[in-house]
Design a binder for these strands. Structure first.
Length: 431
RNA sequence: GGAACGGUGGCAGAGCGGACAAAUGCAUCCGCCUUGAAAGCGGAAGGCUCAAAAGGCCCGGGGGUUCGAAUCCCUCCCGUUCCGCCA
């Protein structure tokens, strides 16, 4: 959520920043928010004046009763009662206006960072790093899509996954299943030097999913367990971000670094029919997420740290990759500044987004009410949040298939994964 | 799922219709003492809202009773313990 005070005091700044996202309807919403805020403050002022008088009268009633002056007390009580109705109706208008304001504010996206590149769509995302580790050319046997490679190796059984759960569910078996698990283990081990490992719940409350920005606007994209009012997490970002919701931390505890392996659940409501084959888009997938909670002062360094860590994982696997920065027109709702790591998959002949690393400024921190206190200072500040996929399994899995396929149809396992693969150095066709 | 007991400031914990934003302890900050520190002594200090003062709001959430609610009533949520069920 954007700071209402900023909206109030510097509306032109907020307008200018949001305009960079290139969506005119946002500016209309912004005006609605501004006028609702004015309403709320006007009602508050009038309500509080009445409340002050009621409080004052109540004290006088107490005094009068104690002094045995019952006539005076009756008189004061009558006055107080008559104010009660006005107070009640003002309180109701306040609730209404406040609720409307909150709803608009929750749906407004974050302001882009001043250094975030301008642009209208993903075509305008500038290249920041790479392409690195790109071979001069690809051989013919690398030009096979991973689902065909995996099928030939007997390590992907999406037909049966569909039988179990329906379209867009995947199932790996044998060395394929082991490879998924190895990728997670690798990602966790490579970040264990600075990140505390968390195994969070996969089902979370509405409040938790609202804090990160998935709700209320993107309810269609998430799986809901309606009977129990719970949601399946689309990413471990949700539980990690809300771990400290409603708490006040000491600044000495910051930055706080957490990482988590989890399954992620996405309805993919807007992309039915896209990437239906193989592993590129599924309703359920595994991911290792890295997360940091910080002061605004250190957030920009942390963003680069998280990005470097994600890059190091991909580089370590020997895959061809590049890093792009997300432009204002392509940025996610909660993002302040954001980078994507893409891996080239020769079989699909596509750059696959395998990691997204973002800084949310205080947008999520305000929604989650995560605050910190500076040592020796009065008052509290809203914490900044950052996160990134350290490693999203399916697309990396697919890229390994397509990049490391040999002429004989076998796939070489990257060296860094072999310790997690019981020493296996390649996946060969069965029999 | 059933029963009992709970939910109060950063933490622990009193208060159980009016003088309560709320005792006390720990932690924090500032003095004094000390070469320095600890201990001791004295003092300061909750959060949110408002440009600020005044004012208002906050004792798990919501609703009610009352002139007045942390305190009484209803309801929901959460926790602990016991029982039931169960990887």
């Amino acid at each position: 959520m954007i700071d209402v005070r900023l909206l109030r005091n510097e509306p032109h700044l907020v307008k200018a920043a949001l305009a960079r996202r290139g969506k005119p309807e946002l500016l209309v919403q912004l005006d609605t928010a501004i006028s609702l805020d004015e309403q709320v403050r006007d009602i508050t002022a009038r309500r509080d004046t009445i409340r002050a008088r009621v409080n004052e009268l109540s004290k006088l009633v107490g005094t009068a009763r104690r002094n045995g002056d019952n006539d005076e007390a009756e008189k004061l009580q009558a006055e107080s009662r008559s104010l009660g109705d006005d107070e009640k109706s003002l309180a109701e208008s306040f609730e209404t206006a406040q609720g409307q304001l909150r709803d608009v504010m929750l749906r407004l996206p974050n302001l882009p960072h001043p250094d975030a590149p301008d642009g209208a769509s993903d075509h305008d995302n500038p290249l920041v790093i790479g392409p690195n580790q790109m071979p001069a050319s690809f051989t013919e046997h690398q030009r096979m899509p991973h689902w065909e490679i995996a099928d030939a190796l007997g390590i992907l059984d999406n037909e049966r996954a569909v039988k179990l759960s329906g379209a867009m569910f995947t199932m790996q078996r044998g060395a394929g299943a082991m490879l998924s698990r190895a990728l997670c283990q690798y990602a966790l081990d490579m970040n264990a030097d600075a990140f505390e490992e968390i195994r969070p719940p996969s089902l979370v409350t509405t409040a938790t999913l609202t804090a990160t920005g998935q709700l209320p606007k993107f309810a269609e994209d998430a799986y809901a367990i309606e009977r129990d009012d719970l949601w399946c997490i689309p990413t471990a970002e949700a539980p990690l971000t809300s771990m400290y919701a409603g708490e006040v931390l000491d600044d000495a505890q910051l930055p706080l670094r957490l990482m988590a392996y989890s399954s992620c659940y996405r309805r993919e409501a807007g992309s039915a029919g896209r990437d239906t084959r193989g592993m590129l888009r599924a309703h359920e997938f595994d991911k290792v997420e890295i997360f940091a909670l910080s002061t605004p002062e250190t957030a920009d360094e942390l963003l680069i740290e998280l990005r470097d860590r994600a890059e190091r994982l991909i580089a370590g696997l020997g895959l061809p990759y590049r890093i792009i920065e997300i432009c204002t027109g392509d940025m996610g709702q909660s993002h302040h500044r954001s980078f994507d790591i893409e891996v080239y998959a020769p079989g699909c002949d596509n750059w696959l987004e395998v990691s997204s690393v973002s800084w949310f400024s205080d947008y999520q921190g305000r929604r989650a009410d995560i605050r910190y206190r500076k040592t020796g200072e009065k008052g509290t500040h809203i914490a900044n949040t950052l996160n990134g996929s350290a490693l999203a399994v399916p697309r990396v899995w697919a890229a390994i298939m397509e990049n490391f396929r040999e002429a004989d149809g076998s796939v070489i396992i990257p060296e860094v994964l072999r310790p997690y693969m019981r020493g296996m150095d390649r996946i060969s066709p069965r029999g």
